[in-house]
Simulated assay, not measured.
Amino acid sequence: MARLLLVAFVLLIIQLFLQRLAMCLMSFSSRLFHLLLSRCNRVVRRRLRTPKDLLLVDSTTISVGKSRLPWALFHGQRAGIKLHVALDATTEQPVQVIETIGTVHDEPIGEKLQTRIISL
C-alpha cells in the first residue's frame, strides 16, 4: 500500500513538472518569436500577415498642492503625479498603468508601455 502511494505521488510530481516545463517552453517560444519578428523588416512582416493589436498610450498629470505630495514637486508651489496608461483598443481595457512624478517625460515611459509580450 505504501509503495502504491509513493508511486502515485512520484507520478503526480512528474506530471506537475512536465506541465510547468510546457508552460516555460511556450513562454520562451513566444518571446523568441516576438524577438525574431521585431528584427524583420517591414516587407517580411507584411508577408507574414501577423495580427496587429492596436495599443493606445496616453498620460494624464494630476496636480495638487505642494503640501499634499511633497515628494512629487511639479511646478513652483504645485506637486503632481503622472499616470501613463496603455489601453487595448479591441477590448477597451487598460493593459498597463505606470505612475511617475509629474515632471517625467512621456517618451521613455511610452516605450515601456508598448513593449508587451504578444501571447500566441
Rank of each mutant, 00 (worst) to 15 (best):
M1Q: 14
A2K: 15
R3C: 09
R3Y: 13
R3K: 10
L4D: 09
L5A: 13
L6A: 11
L6Y: 03
L6K: 04
V7K: 05
V7Q: 07
A8V: 07
A8R: 08
A8M: 11
F9Q: 10
V10H: 05
V10D: 11
I14F: 05
Q15G: 05
Q15R: 12
L16D: 09
F17G: 10
F17I: 14
L18C: 05
L18F: 13
Q19R: 10
Q19T: 09
R20Y: 07
R20C: 03
L21Y: 15
A22P: 00
A22E: 13
M23E: 08
M23W: 04
C24M: 07
C24K: 06
C24P: 01
C24V: 03
M26Q: 13
M26Y: 04
S27V: 02
S27D: 09
F28L: 13
F28Q: 08
F28E: 12
F28V: 08
F28P: 03
S30H: 12
S30R: 11
L32N: 10
H34T: 06
L35Q: 11
L36A: 09
L36M: 11
L36G: 09
L36S: 12
L37D: 11
L37Y: 13
R39M: 11
R39F: 04
C40S: 05
C40A: 11
N41Y: 10
N41G: 14
R42K: 14
V43F: 02
V43L: 02
R45P: 00
R47F: 06
R47C: 03
P51C: 08
P51Y: 05
K52I: 11
D53T: 10
D53H: 04
L54C: 03
L54F: 01
L54M: 06
L54T: 07
L55T: 01
V57R: 00
D58A: 14
D58R: 14
S59N: 11
T61Q: 04
T61R: 04
I62L: 10
S63Q: 05
S63T: 10
K66E: 15
K66Y: 15
S67A: 15
R68M: 08
L69W: 07
L69T: 01
L69Y: 03
W71M: 04
A72Y: 00
A72M: 02
H75G: 03
H75Q: 15
H75Y: 14
H75N: 13
Q77S: 14
R78W: 09
A79V: 01
G80K: 01
I81G: 00
K82E: 02
L83Q: 04
V85E: 05
V85F: 04
A86P: 12
L87D: 03
D88S: 02
D88R: 01
D88G: 02
T90W: 03
T91Q: 15
E92T: 14
P94W: 14
P94F: 15
V95W: 06
Q96Y: 06
V97M: 14
V97T: 10
I98K: 01
T100M: 06
I101N: 02
G102E: 02
T103R: 11
V104H: 04
V104D: 03
H105F: 06
H105L: 08
H105R: 05
E107Q: 12
E107M: 13
E107H: 12
P108L: 08
P108C: 10
E111T: 06
E111Y: 06
L113M: 12
L113W: 04
L113D: 05
T115V: 12
R116S: 14
R116A: 13
I118E: 04
S119A: 10
